[in-house]
């Protein structure tokens, strides 16, 4: 518990580490999501073109 309290600075220290973790996870999730979305859009367009030909 003493480690978590960080000498009464716990709220400041842990909020900074928590926020950093959240931003890194969000950046990773956004990168994956955008790749999936772009890939899917291109795939749908190409397959539609293939079917028409």
């Amino acid at each position: 518990m003493e480690n978590l309290a960080m000498g009464n600075y716990g709220i400041y220290v842990w909020s900074c580490f928590g926020l950093t973790l959240a931003v890194v996870i969000f950046s990773d999730w956004r990168a994956r999501l955008r790749h999936k979305r772009v890939y899917r859009e291109i795939e749908v367009r190409i397959r539609a073109l293939e079917e028409r030909q």
């Binding site: 950046s27 990168a31 994956r32 790749h35 772009v38 890939y39 291109i42 795939e43 367009r45 190409i46």
Partner: peptide
């Protein structure tokens, strides 16, 4: 970690910019 995130984002950017090229079509098919 930044390098890894950047590489993945550049990959997506390349895919989007090259969406009308032959290599993307061949890769997807």
């Amino acid at each position: 970690l930044f390098g890894s995130l950047l590489l993945r984002r550049v990959r997506t950017e390349v895919l989007f910019r090259e969406r009308r090229t032959r290599w993307v079509r061949e890769m997807i098919l």
